[in-house]
Design a protein around this nucleic acid. Structure first.
Lengths: 228, 228, 228, 228
DNA sequence: GATGAATGAGACTTCATTCAT
DNA sequence: CATGAATGAAGTCTCATTCAT
């Protein structure tokens, strides 16, 4: 996972005048390109998007884009990384709010589903477009999948250890949960979506809980009051 | 679903020579191109594959390919259709061999997993490459997903009706099953796969059975004696 | 030198209809592109010439050019090869017409000078533009130089063996001759050239002859009646 | 020739701080850029070198380079000028050390060969890369050639006047000498060079001397004790 | 004076598709 | 029917040069 989640320090100061302003401008442009790319990629698909499109959407020139990123693929990766970091942060938060192991595992899933439900573009990126960029993309994508599956797995392990659920292959269970969620979201993504994705979750819960033989908790610490 | 599963009539009369022969030759060429395309697409990915690659692999010329298919995308669709038809045929067979509704539902899943396990190229086509061809591809792909999910759903409905399992949202359950399977196969596809995909199934079974509150059947009529 | 001078057989017949016509068309286009490239390269310089220019000049499309040649550099090499072959052929002819070893050595030089004098574009290609294409170009160019120098050297060796001239480092002498000629032609090429290049030769002769201590021959079999 | 050899005045007054210091700093930067450019150009070739490369090598920024020079081409010209000035200075020195006209003419040649032999980068610049920059480069380059040829010519004229050699076309003779030397150096430059360039000179001498019908001097005041 | 972000023209190349033979 | 030459639009990327800070 190494590369997917990390921090990029940009505080290096050079020269004899404050670089602060320059740096901010650069960072702001960097972000604007990324935002534009997300929009373009999720709208037209990775392959159909041209660097020109991204340049146009970000009100920059093509050369400007290439100044900030070495290439189209790198933009996609940066996007994935940024989104993954954001998702993981939210997941951590949500997990911290829960106390029961199973609830923690569930929280990971729920947050992803809720976040994707609110950010269609992001969902497309991860669940659809990421497949359209060739071999290297697949590797990165799998890293991301495994990352989330592992979070689920670890908390299911805890649940087993605590006797909350019967012993099962927790990695596989994590994968099943994740795959189930993926399919639900992808379906929502690629068809007309009459009802909000979030609503499916109520129905999805018992299925995944039962899959690992867990009792349905009486109350869900749903964290539904999150904003953004 | 209309287009995905159907028959392509090739009975158009041509000339004054043995139509039979002509037709066979044309059909044979048609099939050879499809086989070549499967090989090429699953090896290099849809976008990275050129029509020239396919022509080369099928020992035809580019013009020849364009005689048999209107374009590159059409080849991919034809491939998907052919594969879907094959898969569905096998699914039907397997279902017919089972008597219990839940077992029938399971059989649908199992056959797909087993078939993909044996035909990696096919699996790549459906689970990975199909995402790389833009909007229209996604629609077709979803049609295919729904088709299989529907098979599962119908038998789960039967199971509910027969009182074999508790009432659940059977469509969602079908989707969960399918999504779980997809994730398992995709993982197997995109990483080194030390053990055969088939082996994961034994572990996957209890999870999906429990998800719908079904008892694990003592013995699976596993149809493991199928060839190809 | 291997690649620089050789023959490209194109007589392979495939299919069931005469390929003669197709082949001719292709060959004709091939040649037209080469001719156009010579014109463009010698007019604008290698780097300043774009493939578009060549396509335009040859009344083809850019794609057409790329069908016949793998890239811009390959066109240049092909041009060099074709010209080298032509030059060498003429050199061989001229040498065959002479009987004295020194006269043979001289003939090699003379033919090149005369040919370049008539085909400025060719001269530019070899003497100027060939330097503008990076490392690989230099290697090829040196191969060409060595080729001609070697012809001179061999006949000077004969002259030494025959006692016509004093023993000298014949390779170096060949290089001196060649270099002298190059400078004369290059100067003619890169400045206004009031008088014909050919006229310089009468003055150049005694210098190069004396350099190897050869008597000036009373009469040069000058082959001046060559056409083209 | 005007521009090629001259002095660049940098006495423009700037501000209220020690002008001397400012000026030195500017000059130092100017020189550093030129040194870097020589390194880069001779290593990668003119076209392949980017202004960024030069900026990097000179530990400046791209903007800094553009402050000191109006453009990439100007850097190359400045380099050529600086090198030509240096070469000519050395030539003058060497000529002054000789007394015989023919020896003076030879000295010009010898110094160039020796200098290039010691500074490969310089040799590449003049003999190879200078061709790769389009029309304007060629003009400048020819100016330089003529300059050196003229030096040789003048001393050969003296030699003729002094009766040391027979009357010949001295300009052409100068060109022959120069061209011969060029070819020898270029060959040394573009191939593996087992032996030092300087060593070829001993063999080259008799050839060029004889070319103008000069006696080989018993001893050359070779100036071999020059450093750098 | 210096810096590095930004520009934008243009280069090479690929390839789905068409079509004359 | 088959072939392969031809087309042309589009794509990614480079880089000399400019300019705000």
């Amino acid at each position: 996972m190494a590369g997917l989640v990390g921090s990029k320090p940009t505080d290096v100061s050079v020269g004899f005048v404050s670089m602060k302003f320059e740096q901010n401008r650069a960072e702001e442009r960097h972000r604007r390109i990324l935002d534009a790319a997300l929009k373009v990629f999720s709208h037209k698909g990775y392959r159909e998007s041209s660097v020109d499109d991204i340049a146009g959407e970000s009100a920059t020139s093509k050369g400007g884009v290439y100044f900030h990123f070495p290439g189209k693929q790198a933009i996609f990766f940066a996007l994935l990384e940024r989104a993954a970091r954001m998702l993981l942060d939210r997941v951590e938060e949500a997990i911290a709010r829960e106390t029961e192991p199973v609830a923690k595992a569930e929280a990971a899933l729920h947050v992803v589903l809720r976040t994707f439900g609110k950010h269609r573009a992001l969902a497309r990126l991860f669940l659809v477009e990421a497949y359209g960029g060739g071999r290297e993309f697949h590797t990165r994508l799998m890293e991301f999948h495994e990352l989330f599956i592992d979070v689920i797995k670890r908390h299911l392990d805890d649940a087993v250890a605590a006797g909350a659920i019967e012993p099962v292959d927790t990695e596989l269970a994590g994968r099943v949960w994740f795959g189930a969620m993926n399919e639900v979201i992808t379906h929502w993504l690629l068809t007309d979506h009459p009802k909000r994705l979030e609503d499916s979750y109520a129905l999805l819960r018992p299925l995944i809980f039962h899959s690992v033989g867990a009792e349905m908790p009486v109350h869900v610490g749903d964290g539904a009051n999150e904003n953004r």
